[in-house]
């Protein structure tokens, strides 16, 4: 399995939760509840889900700024989990993360150029000439004028800020980048150019990428494989084409049916009705999705389904995936 660069097994992250001297203790939320996935060298793996599904926490845990409470992370077969935060970051130096909110991810008091250079300084790339050369190359690679370095974050457009945050991370020559909603908040035309840039850079630098997004259209366009998350769990993982053309898990089907597509005259009532998602603090017993699932039976309430192989390269976490009739999702 030299094919796998990053291997995550049974990862679990608890968020919040406070023991207080006075007053009631707040129980933590299991934001990531036993996720296993293998990132293959050079692929773009999409992680998709609705807000609160734990996709961002998964990214932050893999990065190491959020400590896992259980599970193992292996980088090139070497265990890099179970460490305190700073050591975890040092061990996972090959993994870098690009924040969703590019404007907020830069210190407003620092010029963009200084922020970029700082990334190199922190990581001990010492000589000034070398830093400047690397930054110059990287700015050119992300399509920014070197003169932009003197400006401050609030003076840049959304698209430019994305490029800056991307450059700040890529200049460190990581092998894995985690992109968290890389185009959220961008206009359609800017989104297109940023996505193209991401695709080109990932290919050129031969990077492996965990692509976190809620936008199914974007994921379909960008990713090789896609994992669908629901309440901290991966419910289905398959090659992009396979997943979009023949979704297996009931939640995947609902999600695909609900996503807006560029086809006029859709029947808004074709997709199955769904209630409100349960709160992450009160996850249903057994299968987390069962309260909104059209196919739920007794066993779904008592036993949590495991992520099991379901045909070529697909894994799915559902007791009844074999029995549910083929997806009625409209293909386009």
């Amino acid at each position: 399995m030299s094919d796998v660069i990053l291997d995550v097994e049974g990862l679990e992250t608890l968020l919040g939760g406070e023991r207080r001297l006075l007053g009631a203790a707040r129980p933590p939320v299991r934001a990531v509840a036993g996720v296993s996935l293998a990132l293959r060298r050079g692929e773009i793996l999409g992680v998709v889900g609705e807000s609160g599904c734990g996709k961002t926490t998964l990214g932050r845990t893999i990065l190491g700024i959020q400590r896992e409470s259980a599970g193992t992370i292996r980088l090139d077969g070497r265990v890099v989990s179970g460490l305190p935060p700073r050591e975890a970051r040092r061990a996972r130096h090959d993994v870098q993360y690009v924040h969703q909110d590019a404007a907020a991810a830069l210190d407003p008091w620092w010029s963009v150029g200084r922020s970029l250079e700082e990334a190199l300084l922190i990581n001990g790339i010492g000589r000034r000439a070398e830093r400047e050369a690397r930054l110059g190359r990287m700015l050119a690679a992300v399509g920014l004028e070197p003169a932009l370095g003197r400006r401050y974050p609030h003076e840049l457009s959304g698209g430019q800020l994305r490029r800056v945050t991307l450059a700040r991370v890529l200049v460190l020559a990581p092998r894995i980048v985690i992109l968290d909603e890389p185009t959220s908040g961008l206009d359609l035309s800017v989104q297109a150019t940023v996505l193209r840039l991401v695709r080109e850079l990932l290919g050129e630098l031969r990077l492996t990428c965990l692509f976190i997004s809620h936008d199914l259209s974007v994921v379909r366009q960008m990713c090789d494989r896609v994992a669908i998350m629901y309440l901290g769990r991966i419910v289905e993982l398959a090659a992009t084409r396979q997943l979009f053309e023949a979704p297996v898990h009931p939640y995947t089907r609902v999600l695909l049916a609900a996503a807006p597509r560029l086809v006029a005259g859709q029947d808004l009532h074709a997709a199955p009705i769904l209630g409100e998602p349960p709160s992450p603090t009160a996850v249903p017993s057994g299968c987390a999705f069962r309260t909104r699932c059209l196919h739920a039976v007794d066993v779904c309430a008592t036993r949590e389904p495991a992520l099991e192989p379901a045909g070529a390269g697909r894994t799915v976490s559902c007791h009844r995936w074999r029995e549910i009739p083929a997806a009625p999702v409209t293909a386009d």
């Binding site: 993360y97 008091w109 700082e118």
Partner: peptide, 23 residues
């Protein structure tokens, strides 16, 4: 978010406190 981003880049506490939080 920018402090978190710095921690993601593995910046030390001193740098974060005096070069970023203080200004």
């Amino acid at each position: 978010v920018f402090v978190e981003a710095l921690e993601g880049l593995n910046a030390g506490a001193g740098r974060v406190m005096f070069a970023h939080i203080l200004p």
